[in-house]
Simulated assay, not measured.
Amino acid sequence: MPAPYPSATEAQPVARQPIWTTTGELHGYEYLYRSRIGRPAQVDRWSAPLQDGATACVLSTVFQHGEPPGDALAFVNVTRSFLVHDLPLPFAPGRLVVEVVETVAADRRVLDGLAVLRAAGYRIALDDFVASADQVAMLPFADYVKVDCRDVEADTGRLTRLARREGALLVAERVSSDARRRRCADLGFDLLQGDALGRAVTVQL
Rank of each mutant, 00 (worst) to 15 (best):
A142V: 05
T61K: 04
E10S: 11
A200P: 07
G38F: 13
D128V: 01
D44H: 12
L83V: 03
A179S: 12
C57P: 12
W20F: 03
D178Y: 15
R45L: 05
V78D: 11
G121F: 06
A120V: 08
A168R: 11
S35P: 14
R80Y: 10
T103Y: 06
M1H: 13
V58A: 05
G24D: 02
A3L: 15
S47R: 15
Y33L: 08
R95P: 08
M1P: 11
T9L: 15
S60Q: 14
R108P: 15
V58M: 13
T61Y: 02
V104T: 14
A119D: 13
D178P: 14
Q64C: 07
L169T: 12
A179T: 10
L96F: 10
P13F: 01
D148L: 08
G198M: 14
V78R: 12
E102I: 07
Q42K: 11
V171M: 04
R36S: 07
D148W: 07
R180S: 13
T61V: 06
R180L: 08
E67A: 10
C184L: 15
V152T: 05
L169G: 14
V116Y: 04
A196F: 12
L32D: 01
L191W: 03
L117V: 01
C184Q: 07
L117F: 03
G194N: 09
A54Y: 04
A74E: 09
D71P: 11
A54C: 04
I124Q: 03
N77R: 08
V147D: 01
V130H: 12
Q135G: 01
P69C: 08
L169Q: 09
R199V: 10
L169C: 05
G121C: 03
I124E: 01
C57K: 13
L83I: 04
V58W: 04
R109Y: 15
S177T: 02
E30S: 03
E10K: 14
D112M: 04
A125Q: 07
E10I: 15
V58H: 08
G194D: 07
R164F: 12
F129T: 06
